[in-house]
Nucleic acid binder design. Structure first.
Lengths: 217, 217
DNA sequence: GTGCACAAGATTGTGAGCAATCCGTTCCCT
DNA sequence: AGGGAACGGATTGCTCACAATCTTGTGCAC
């Protein structure tokens, strides 16, 4: 099932949505996408089905697919769910990370510190993503990892917001430091708590700055 | 997308797996299923794709679908993820439940008490499911609800285990009572904690009694 | 007897075409 | 003018047929 070609089409279509080339609420006509991606309509169909289960597009019987519009309220929900799951991975990481993994995590954090002092918020944001990914990898929790990936996919259009809020980056770095220290010292409770605090901050930053999602007129 | 007929086939196929008529690791041949369900192969294909994203079946390119075997370790993972998500719904329920919903939840708990004293563990188990469903409904958290449903789907073949462990039912009832009281008194922290304790107990009961999944030889 | 190449059968993946359904428009009746 | 039924275009959902791929069984060399 899902040949490499079909997989590729699925990924490309997803990227079109993530990159904003296909706007939220835009109607996704199978024939158009088939031509755009240079694949058959059947391939587009399976890709759309998968994206539907991912929550990235909305499927309506006999009416096709639309890029899902994530409202502010839904974004908060998604972040909340992601928070408790990432907190779980932080806890597991504190329990199971190898010394090598902890060293790698520390290295990422150090890199973020550097970027922050240089004022390079974009690179800082990359480090942010890398750090979370490293923690998830260290947790070795497939289930949580899969769910988090799915949730993040639904939030792509919001992700650039929070770092750019004045003063946010500094706080963010402190929160990340707390998480890393807790993991390094094998304190499961603290790691989970620190991750929840962190994502709770992201959530409140988001809901204070965002009043309407990006793609809406 | 996904006409009612296709939806129906998806549900029926899922039930075949849940009920154990299709055993874990069993190969799912599209043509056979099409005849069995009296639908076209295309419908079976979309159903399999959806089940694949649900984590109920495993899809391999050019080799078709198999019923996923959930190992003990994976079951624990799934329960952990479910625990933090249901804890989130308990918290939200404590915050948002209407008086009517709290009354309904209390009624379900009272019914469970009755069944327990009658020794009717099967009905007690039904009440258990109803209680969790009521709490999730009261939380009004679509995202968490969806994820929990997906996780539960992967655990069906384990769900009968824990209630039958001697003495487990009594403890279970106490845990449920704590959850309900916390929600009723609007104590978000306590509600979340109580739910996590409860599902943590389920997890440890499971890992102490189960050494191999049901469907393995 | 063992291992490997190869062919035959089985099964999935995809393309083309058709029926079913939905949406927008027009036409008709009041 | 307004409301609603009916028509036409557009799009999805599905069937059928075929190509691509995997699996199994056979024969051959060693």
């Amino acid at each position: 099932m899902t040949s490499p070609a079909a997989d590729d089409a699925y990924l490309r279509l997803r990227n079109l949505i993530y990159s904003g080339e296909l706007m939220p609420n835009e109607r996704l006509v199978e024939a158009d996408l088939a031509e755009r991606l240079q694949v058959g309509r059947a391939v587009v169909r399976t890709a759309l089905l998968r994206l539907g289960q991912d929550g990235v597009v909305i499927l309506t019987p006999h009416r096709g697919a639309r890029v899902r519009v994530v409202t502010d309220a839904e974004a908060v929900e998604i972040l909340q769910a992601r928070a408790v799951l990432e907190a779980l991975t932080a806890r597991e990481a504190a329990r199971r990370a190898t010394a090598k993994e902890i060293a790698a995590i520390r290295r990422i954090l150090a890199g973020m510190s550097r970027k922050l002092s240089e004022g390079d918020l974009l690179s800082y944001s990359d480090g942010n993503a890398a750090l979370h990914a490293a923690i998830i990898a260290a947790a070795r929790h497939e289930t949580a990892a899969r769910l988090i990936t799915g949730l993040r996919a639904q939030l792509v259009r919001f992700q650039f917001r929070t770092i750019l809020v004045p003063g946010r980056a500094t706080h963010s770095f402190a929160e990340h430091t707390a998480i890393v220290e807790a993991i390094a010292s094998r304190d499961e409770e603290a790691a989970e708590r620190a991750m929840r605090v962190h994502l709770g901050q992201v959530e409140s930053t988001l809901s204070h700055t965002t009043r309407r999602p990006l793609g809406e007129s």
